[in-house]
């Protein structure tokens, strides 16, 4: 008999549980049993994401499986199946590409999906900043020439020269 969870290894643990007055029998391999917290002789690292990955699996199954499963992150090519196997996303873009699923899973893991800690703004690139300032100076130079403010125009031209 194969394990009912992984369908790969032989079931050697036969777990009987009683829920809502109904008896359930579950046939598991040693590893899957250990992952569910059943004490076995096998030493397994309890995966911190065990429960979480189980949920992803369920969610994929209820969503029809294959369609979400084959979705790929446009930046790093990570798929839902990769995430299930490793418990890790491939890049920051994955969070946008798998957004809807991630929101639900974060709610389950953290009890919330909304960050309310410190907010952050990435540094503005120096090149971009310089280009913006230069653009503004050139605009002002054009206006100064148009309005015949030649002294101001000369000053602006000098500043632009220094920056270029």
């Amino acid at each position: 008999m194969l394990c009912e969870t992984c369908h790969e290894r032989d079931a050697v643990v036969h777990l009987t549980t009683i829920e809502n007055n109904a008896v359930h029998q579950l046939h598991l391999c040693e590893r899957c049993a250990a992952e569910r917290g059943v004490e076995t002789t096998l030493k397994t690292d309890k995966h911190p994401l065990g429960e979480f990955l189980h949920l992803v699996h369920q969610q994929v199954a209820t969503a029809g499986g294959t369609s979400t499963d084959s979705m790929r992150c446009s930046f790093c090519n990570t798929t839902m199946a990769d995430f299930r196997a490793t418990g890790r996303w491939g890049c920051a873009r994955c969070y946008s590409n798998f957004e809807a699923g991630i929101r639900e899973l974060l709610r389950r893991v953290h009890g919330s999906h909304r960050h309310i800690g410190r907010s952050y703004r990435p540094p503005v690139s120096e090149t971009l900043e310089r280009q913006a300032v230069l653009g503004e100076l050139k605009d002002r130079l054009r206006r100064a020439i148009e309005s015949e403010q030649f002294e101001l125009a000369a000053d602006l031209r000098d500043r632009i020269r220094v920056m270029e």
Binding site: R88, Y95, S96, I102, L105, L106, R114, H115
Partner: peptide, 17 residues
Amino acid sequence: YHGEFGFLTACPTNVGT
């Protein structure tokens, strides 16, 4: 960084702060 999810991490158990 993501406006809704906060600091983005490889493992979703670390995301946010």
